[in-house]
C-alpha cells in the first residue's frame, strides 16, 4: 500500500514503518499529510501482522519542521475547523494505538514534528536533532496534543518553559530533560531503531499492548485506580495465555 504523496508506509517482518516523505518541504505537516496519516495509522492499528510501529522521516535536514503555515490563513471558520478536528481525530487515533510506537528523530523537529514524536512511546534521536515548540510566537498554541503530551513526558517545569519561550534545544539537553530517550550518531539512527523494534517485536502482542495501556492510562488515574487497571490487564493476559496453552 503506497498510494500516498506525503508518506511512505512499509511493513517489514512485524514492524510497520511510517516515513514522512516531503523532504523538500522539510516534511512539514499539511492537510494531505493529515489525511494520509489518518489512513496509515488506522491500517497499522488494525493490522494483526504489525506488532510495532516506527515513525521516521525522509531527507537529510528535518524529521518535521512543523505545520504548513501557508494553509493556515485559508482555514475555515473556527466552528467548522473545530468540527473537522473531531471528525477526523488523527491525534486521538495516534495516541489510541495500543502497539508500541517508536520515533526516529533527526534534524529539525518543530511544532507538529515534536507533537507527532510525543504521540510515540519511545523517542530515539540523532545527535544533529534540534527541537522546539514555536507556536506562541505565531499567535497560536500546539494543537496536535503537544500541550498535553509534553508536560506528561517531561514534567510541568520544562514543558512550560519550552512552550512559553519557544526556545530550541539540541540533543544533549533533550536527553537530559527526557524529551528523547536516547541519542545516537546520525548514521546509526535507523539501524538502532530497527534493532529496538525487532527486540520489542519478539514479545507477545497482547503483553505489549497491555503494558502500554497500563502505563499510559494508569498515569491518568489515581494510583488506586491504576492498580485496579493493572490487575485487570494482568489477569486478562494470564487468561489468554492459559487458553492458548490449553489449545
Amino acid at each position: 500500500m503506497s498510494n500516498f504523496e506525503t508518506i511512505i508506509y512499509e511493513k517489514q517482518d512485524n514492524v510497520g514503518y511510517i516515513t514522512l516523505n516531503r523532504p523538500k518541504a522539510l516534511n512539514v505537516y499539511n492537510i494531505q499529510m493529515r489525511d494520509e496519516l489518518y489512513q496509515v495509522l488506522g491500517a497499522l492499528k488494525d493490522d494483526p501482522e504489525v506488532k510495532v510501529g516506527v515513525l521516521r522521516a525522509a531527507g537529510e535536514r528535518a524529521f518535521c519542521a512543523g505545520a504548513d503555515l501557508t494553509e493556515f490563513l485559508t482555514a475555515p471558520s473556527p466552528t467548522i475547523a473545530r468540527q473537522v478536528r473531531w471528525q477526523r481525530d488523527v491525534w486521538g487515533l495516534f495516541l489510541g494505538i495500543k502497539k508500541p510506537m517508536l520515533a526516529a528523530l533527526h534534524g529539525y523537529v518543530f511544532g507538529s514534528g515534536i507533537e507527532m514524536a510525543l504521540c510515540c512511546d519511545i523517542r530515539i534521536a540523532s545527535d544533529d536533532v534540534q527541537l522546539g515548540v514555536p507556536e506562541t510566537g505565531l499567535g497560536i498554541i500546539p494543537a496536535a496534543g503537544g500541550t498535553q503530551t509534553l508536560p506528561r513526558t517531561i514534567g510541568r517545569g520544562y514543558a512550560l518553559e519550552l512552550l512559553l519561550s519557544g526556545r530550541w534545544i539540541k540533543a544533549e539537553e533533550a536527553l537530559r530533560i527526557k524529551l528523547v530517550d536516547r541519542v545516537v550518531p546520525r548514521n546509526e539512527l535507523w539501524p538502532v531503531v530497527d534493532q529496538l523494534a525487532a527486540k520489542i517485536g519478539e514479545h507477545s502482542a497482547s503483553m505489549l499492548s497491555y503494558a502500554k495501556q497500563a502505563v499510559t492510562r494508569g498515569l491518568d488515574l489515581t494510583l488506586e485506580q491504576g492498580l485496579e487497571l493493572e490487575f485487570r490487564l494482568g489477569t486478562s493476559l494470564l487468561e489468554e495465555k492459559m487458553q492458548e496453552e490449553a489449545i
Binding site: 473556527p78 505565531l138 498554541i141 496534543g145 508536560p151 506528561r152 510541568r156 514543558a159 499510559t216
Partner: peptide, 29 residues
C-alpha cells in the same frame, strides 16, 4: 497564546489525556 498555553498545561495535567486534548483544541480554535 501564552495565557492559553499556560492554562492548557496546568489545567490539562489535572484531567485525563483525553479531556486535556479537548481543552487544548478548544483553546486552539
Amino acid at each position: 497564546a501564552l495565557r492559553y498555553a499556560k492554562e492548557a498545561v496546568n489545567k490539562g495535567l489535572d484531567v485525563t489525556l483525553e479531556q486535556g486534548l479537548r481543552l487544548e483544541a478548544d483553546l486552539y480554535f
